[in-house]
Each structure stands twice: as structure tokens, then as C-alpha cells.
Simulated assay, not measured.
Amino acid sequence: MNNMAVCNYIVGVLGAVIGGLIMQAAAAFPLEFTENGPGPGFWPFSLGAVLGAVSVLLLLYTFINKTDLHGVKVQLSSTGNKRVYLMMGFVVLFCVLISILGFYPAAALMI
């Protein structure tokens, strides 16, 4: 499980699924352009599409280079990764605080 190919496959599939879910949720809002600019669903839909496309590219890259990537070991408990996990926790906490306190108090606490 600790080789780069397996990790890339997991991240690629999760990214594609999350991108698809973002696109599905954004499609509930108007996407078309008006005289005031794009509809409220345009940018979230675009970001979901980009996430899905980049995830598919990661899967294709991993499939093409799977023999090289099987030799690359991933150390999930390194110091750099622990910092990333900490920041991910802060982002989750921020999202929870938004639903409890509202955006401005949560943003002030996050900053």
C-alpha cells in the first residue's frame, strides 16, 4: 500500500468522484451567462470539472508509468505529511465553524 502507484490510484479515484459530486451539486444552480456574467453554478461546476479532469490525468499517468511508480515508496508519517494533515484538520474545523458561527466569525478565528 505504501507505493506511489497505489496512492495515485486512490487519490485519482477520490478526486474524480469528488469532482463529479461537485459538478452534480453545481448543476442545480443556473450555469448560463447573462448580462451580469455567469450564473452562480458556473464557477463551482468549472472547478469540479477541472478536478475531475486532473484526476483522470493522474490515473492515466499512473497507468502508463506503473512499473516506475511501484518502486517509489510513500512515507505517510513523515514530518511534511504531518503538517499537511494538520492543515487539513484546520480546513475541516473552519467548515464546521462556518455552519455553527457563520462565515465572518469563523474566518476571523481562522485568520
Rank of each mutant, 00 (worst) to 15 (best):
1 M>L: 08
2 N>S: 08
2 N>T: 06
3 N>D: 13
3 N>I: 06
3 N>E: 06
4 M>T: 07
4 M>E: 10
6 V>R: 13
6 V>T: 14
7 C>L: 15
7 C>P: 06
8 N>P: 01
8 N>G: 03
10 I>F: 01
11 V>H: 04
11 V>A: 14
12 G>Q: 05
12 G>W: 06
13 V>C: 09
14 L>A: 13
14 L>G: 02
14 L>W: 05
14 L>T: 07
15 G>V: 06
16 A>H: 03
16 A>F: 15
19 G>R: 00
20 G>Q: 01
21 L>Y: 05
22 I>P: 00
24 Q>R: 10
26 A>R: 00
30 P>A: 08
30 P>E: 07
32 E>K: 14
33 F>Y: 14
34 T>W: 02
34 T>F: 04
35 E>K: 15
38 P>H: 09
38 P>S: 12
39 G>H: 09
42 F>N: 08
43 W>Y: 15
47 L>E: 06
47 L>T: 11
48 G>F: 01
49 A>R: 01
49 A>G: 12
52 G>V: 02
53 A>M: 11
55 S>H: 01
56 V>C: 08
57 L>D: 03
57 L>E: 06
57 L>A: 15
58 L>C: 05
59 L>C: 10
61 Y>T: 06
63 F>M: 03
63 F>S: 08
63 F>D: 01
63 F>H: 06
65 N>H: 11
67 T>A: 15
67 T>I: 13
68 D>M: 12
70 H>E: 11
70 H>A: 11
71 G>C: 09
72 V>W: 02
75 Q>T: 10
76 L>V: 09
78 S>H: 02
79 T>S: 15
80 G>V: 04
82 K>C: 11
82 K>D: 13
83 R>G: 14
83 R>V: 13
83 R>W: 14
87 M>R: 04
87 M>D: 04
88 M>L: 09
89 G>P: 03
89 G>T: 07
90 F>G: 01
92 V>C: 08
92 V>R: 00
94 F>E: 07
95 C>K: 00
95 C>H: 06
96 V>E: 03
97 L>A: 15
97 L>Y: 08
98 I>L: 12
98 I>Q: 11
98 I>F: 01
99 S>I: 12
99 S>P: 01
100 I>D: 09
101 L>D: 10
104 Y>Q: 13
105 P>S: 03
106 A>F: 00
108 A>S: 10
109 L>T: 03
110 M>I: 05
110 M>N: 09
111 I>N: 13
111 I>T: 12
